[in-house]
C-alpha cells in the first residue's frame, strides 16, 4: 500500500522533472527529419545495371502485399525477358510495410525515403508503371537477375549465366 502510494508520488516527481528536458519534436516541415536509405517511403521500380527493366512480373510483390494494392500483368518481350505489361500500385491503400521489397527476387521494387506524397484527389494516388519506374538501380547497384537465372534471353544463351556449364550435347557419348 505504502509502496503503491509512494510510486504515484515518485512518478509525479519524475514527470515534474521533465519540465527541464528538451522537446524531442522535430518541427516538420521547417525541419526535415533524417531518413535512412532503408526508410520505407514511396515505392519505385528500378533498372538493372545494363539499363533494362528489372521487374520480371513474377507477382511475388503482389501476393506479399498485405493490403493487396499491387496489380500487374506479365508479358514476354521479343528477347525472352518477362516484363510487366502494366504495373499499378494504389498508394491510397499502401501501408509502406516494405513486404513487396522483401519479396522481390530481382531488387526491382524498392522503397525510397520519400514520404511526401499527399494529393487532393485520391485518384492521383494510383501510380502506373511510368510513374514508378526510375532511371537507375536504386539501393542495389550490381544485381542483374538475368545473369543468375537460367532463362535464355537475347545476348545470353543457355549456359552463359553465373555458375552455369555450357549446354550439354545430348548426342555425345562422353561420360
Amino acid at each position: 500500500m505504502f509502496e503503491a502510494v509512494f510510486s504515484q508520488f515518485r512518478s509525479i516527481w519524475r514527470i515534474l522533472g521533465h519540465s527541464f528536458s528538451r522537446a524531442e519534436t522535430v518541427q516538420y516541415p521547417e525541419q526535415k527529419p533524417y531518413l535512412a536509405p532503408r526508410y520505407r517511403g514511396r515505392i519505385v521500380l528500378t533498372l538493372d545495371p545494363d539499363g533494362e527493366e528489372r521487374c520480371v512480373a513474377c507477382n511475388l510483390c503482389a501476393v506479399a502485399c498485405p493490403v493487396d494494392c499491387i496489380a500487374l500483368q506479365q508479358g514476354v518481350r521479343e528477347d525472352g525477358r518477362w516484363y510487366p505489361e502494366f504495373f499499378r500500385i494504389n498508394f491510397s491503400r499502401c501501408i509502406m510495410c516494405g513486404m513487396c521489397e522483401e519479396a522481390c527476387p530481382t531488387y526491382a521494387i524498392q522503397l525510397t525515403p520519400d514520404f511526401e506524397m499527399c494529393e487532393y484527389q485520391r485518384q492521383s494516388m494510383v501510380y502506373e508503371k511510368e510513374h514508378l519506374q526510375i532511371a537507375g538501380t536504386g539501393k542495389y547497384p550490381d544485381y542483374n537477375f538475368y545473369r543468375v537465372s537460367g532463362l535464355k534471353i537475347a545476348g545470353k544463351d543457355k549456359g552463359e549465366a553465373l555458375n552455369e556449364a555450357s549446354p550439354i550435347d545430348i548426342r555425345s557419348l562422353m561420360p
Binding site: 507477382n59 493490403v67 494494392c69 496489380a71 485518384q123 502506373e128
Partner: peptide
Amino acid sequence: HRYSGRTAMRANVSVQ
C-alpha cells in the same frame, strides 16, 4: 485465399 491485387486491379478506372 492468396488472391492478390484486389485494391489495385480496378484502380486505374476508379480508386473507389
